[in-house]
């Protein structure tokens, strides 16, 4: 049953300062509205609980993708279309570009924003695994200032984030350090959805591997835990043991311990776990092939 549209009040501040002062004045009252691709669906099915919405559309401080030698800054209101069509993002941050392309279909990509995807904090969101694998930093802003934190620390539990009630996500920052070594980074993104397009993920995996910098290894899963999950223990096993079959088996055992998938409307815990292990194995075997190429100097 549809929500009761007249009950929803929307404020449309003209500046970021105004938006932040509204949030500060009435903490928790105003829910930010960006591209609407999540909130309008909740409204349609009658479950959009917060009746006070803060329309962020047009806030210049939150838009645009800017490039500096050290980093690429993606404004929170950037749409996935803008992201996937950005040439530098495509070459330097391919996991993010792949994630953006896997979201919904074109009409959704044209409206859905990266800030909304993050703030919604669904464990099934497509961009967070890619962002974590790229070592993204998130910038939060409030009336009293702004702060940056590692994006990997932003999600704390099911639908729980570090975003305070008076804060907005201003931007995602991608460090370009990897641009120096990026040519040898091996990236792997796989969304296992219910179909090829217009799908919500059942499992999502973003992996990154560098043959010469074991510290660059990232194993990040979506949809298999209360929140997006970087599997640090499993990473450590590979970093310590290499890519031989025995270590890969140890990594799979570790991953089994790290993930906590559930049964839901889209899949089963059993399937999610098994496929996650398969994805890890596929990734590590490909990584080993890359490594042997590097070792052979090819």
């Amino acid at each position: 049953m549809r929500g009761y549209v007249p009950a929803y009040e929307v404020k449309s501040p003209e500046t970021l300062t105004e938006a932040l002062s509204i949030l500060q004045a009435q903490p928790g009252k105003w829910k930010p509205l960006a591209g609407g691709t999540d909130l309008m669906v909740l409204l349609e099915s009658g479950v959009l609980e917060n009746r006070n919405l803060l329309n962020l559309q047009g806030l210049k401080e939150l838009t645009g993708i800017s490039v500096s030698p050290a980093e690429i800054t993606i404004g929170a209101l950037s749409t996935f279309r803008q992201i996937l069509e950005h040439d530098l993002l495509k070459t330097e941050f391919p996991l993010l570009a792949a994630a953006a392309r896997s979201i919904g279909a074109i009409a959704i990509q044209n409206r859905a924003t990266i800030g909304g995807n993050i703030a919604n904090a669904s464990p099934a969101a497509d961009s967070p695994p890619a962002l974590i694998a790229h070592d993204a930093v998130i910038e939060l802003v409030s009336s009293t200032g702004s702060r940056r934190l590692s994006y990997a620390e932003f999600h704390q539990g099911y639908k729980k984030t570090q975003l305070a009630t008076d804060e907005l996500i201003r931007a995602i920052i991608l460090p370009r350090t990897q641009a120096d070594t990026g040519s040898n980074d091996f990236f792997f993104y796989r969304k296992v959805g219910t179909r090829k397009a217009q799908a919500i993920s059942k499992i999502c995996f973003a992996g990154r591997f560098h043959p010469c910098s074991p510290g660059n290894l990232r194993l990040v899963f979506g949809s298999v835990a209360p929140t997006v999950l970087r599997c640090i223990q499993t990473e450590a096993i590979i970093q310590g043991g290499g890519l031989d079959l025995k270590t890969i088996q140890k990594a799979k055992d570790s991953l089994t311990r790290e993930l906590s998938p559930i049964d839901d409307i889209r899949s089963t815990a059993e399937y999610r776990l098994r496929v996650s292990l398969n994805l890890l194995e596929d990734f590590l075997i490909l990584a080993r092939q890359k490594q042997s190429h590097v070792e052979l100097g090819s």
Binding site: V41, S45, A105, T194, R195, K196, A197, Q198, A199, I200, I265, R266
Partner: peptide
């Protein structure tokens, strides 16, 4: 029916 929405009842798209 608990998946009575097009998000959760999956029919083929042009890519399938």
């Amino acid at each position: 029916m608990i998946n009575n929405r097009m998000t959760n009842y999956i029919v083929p798209t042009a890519q399938d």
